[in-house]
Nucleic acid binder design. Sequence first.
DNA 1: GTGAAAGCGCTAACAC
DNA 2: GTGTTAGCGCTTTCAC
Lengths: 365, 365
Amino acid sequence: MAGKSRRKRGGSGGHRLEDVARLAGVSPITVSRTLNKPEAVSELTRAAVRKAVERVGYVPNRLAGGLASNKSKSIGVVLPSITNPAFAERVQGMTDVLLPAGYNLLLGLSGNSTEAELQHVMAFLGQRIAALALTGTQHAERTRRLIAQAGIPVVEIPVISGRLIDMAVGYSNEAASYAMVKHLARFGYRRVAFLSANVASNQLLQERLKGYRQAVADLGLDSDPALIAEATFSPASSASAFVELLARRPDLEAVFCTSDLQAIGCALEAKRRGIRVPEDIGIAGYDDVELAQEFVPTLSSVRFDRYEMGRTASRLLLARIQGEMPEQTVIDVGFEIMARSSTKRPAHRGRTGKRVRPTAGSCRG
Amino acid sequence: MAGKSRRKRGGSGGHRLEDVARLAGVSPITVSRTLNKPEAVSELTRAAVRKAVERVGYVPNRLAGGLASNKSKSIGVVLPSITNPAFAERVQGMTDVLLPAGYNLLLGLSGNSTEAELQHVMAFLGQRIAALALTGTQHAERTRRLIAQAGIPVVEIPVISGRLIDMAVGYSNEAASYAMVKHLARFGYRRVAFLSANVASNQLLQERLKGYRQAVADLGLDSDPALIAEATFSPASSASAFVELLARRPDLEAVFCTSDLQAIGCALEAKRRGIRVPEDIGIAGYDDVELAQEFVPTLSSVRFDRYEMGRTASRLLLARIQGEMPEQTVIDVGFEIMARSSTKRPAHRGRTGKRVRPTAGSCRG
DNA sequence: GTGAAAGCGCTAACAC
DNA sequence: GTGTTAGCGCTTTCAC
């Protein structure tokens, strides 16, 4: 006791490195090393320190550690929203890799606003995050500048083209969309609607719309702009968008929705109206959520491994944090067109289960 | 230049308070005050400082600030998983309140393991989180001890009974479950199955099972233990559990699922087997996801406002962080039985839309 | 309203 | 392998 008179120790009540050190009969730095670089400490000392740590229930102050070392054990993640299962699984994949490595997740929800993203990135940088995971490649210039200045590893998900900041894990949304339209065309659907959430604010949807348009052009499908509609992610909203599409184009043959929930909304509306799927109208979704293959009829969808994407992205970040330089920093995880009943128009026979290999990233076949 | 020789300033490149201060022609502490307590600084100085901050793009180091003040602007949140939309909406509600107040979210996914929860809480405490939000009241003793020692505000969600640590926002899961079974009984279903995820590891499900059992006993329904089954959250898994229930009890009349996705899994399986819902079998869900009211048939479910729960919990935490003592620290948000087609057995007529008022927290009517 | 000094708890650097 | 010293960038305390 009678240490140098300190400023009042806040209510956080924790013990300090020094307390543990005294108890273990070593210097503070030895305790620090035991915790951070155990291999640099003799086995004997290590045991003594560990015992002391246990004894007082020492929880290191990461704020102090971070300040001293100018880096923290936190990783920032910015997502548009988390209610969308597509993003939720990515987060799960990330924590599953980062937690065992001792890293925490700082979560920022941006709602597709680059301004909100900037706010989050600033806050994260203020906490000296060790790395950053962003969604898409659409960022405020200031965000890019701040990140560059910070010099931390960054991974963008789930895109692999565009103006990449650093690393990326994803696939070509455009190619996936193209492939699905091609799949529909193969089954004879030629008046195919594109139903998505608000495209203007969402880069991924822009890519998908581009793929849709390209396929429509390439395959000579109906290119009427009235076939393009927007709805929120709720099934109810997409149901009414579907109704409007039908009103605009009573000869509508298929709807390609950029989310499964929207596709299900359309399918349910079709059922309520006695429209048969896939006979009268083909319906395709996106994301391949679990419900897609259980639904009646089973729902064709675009599949990509969101969970694995989170894991891969995290591994990339961890490698870079540890100073390694992964040979591949832009990883294409590919996608898969899951051809199921909802787009299987009778009297048409198409190939199914087309898998786009990771390195391809575009539609083949 | 020629400042006192410092340890190398890490690559994080940022400017310091001192840089801004020099530029603005004031002392560092004045800059600090301008940023944290603007009202304590003259308008003129404030303007000068703000300009300097803008000019160099100053991002305060929260690590340093946190160390000095022994508190951070981060709030820890522990959830079992985030793939479940029920939790995702809570998180959205929390950030919507916390972000404008300048707080970040540290996310920890525990998978219903109290041990994992402990790990997260330790890591969070190491970062001197300002407050903590936990799921349920089942915690390791050590977790409780650490939290008590830290003396930070805690809110538990979505439960309001049991061994509460501090504050709570939620409703009685038991009463909600009881109410749904009662609703089923009112429509003449007497052989009601209870289908949930693994109960042993999940406190909420335990409460719901208790409510089910109590209702079965009180209302004289069939209490055969074979009517209780488990499945994962996937619709496929619950579909097979449903099949097994039918095998065990071919005279099964209704299934009460503790999640909507499971209920939908059952309903889809019923459709595949030509079993009519609600005529042959009644199906009830839990959570009232958007799809529930769009599904065909519309799905009866237990509703509670998850988003608002997140907001309320966050407001409680913020108040306590600011030293206020909210008069109510255990908030019952109530629940609602959404009576829809999937449980409306013809020739039976029950009351619908029963709303349990927040302060009631139990089943009335 | 503003500033000077001290120190939050830890780790980097260098000595032994 | 272990210890000593000097800060990390901020906020507290107390003076003016």
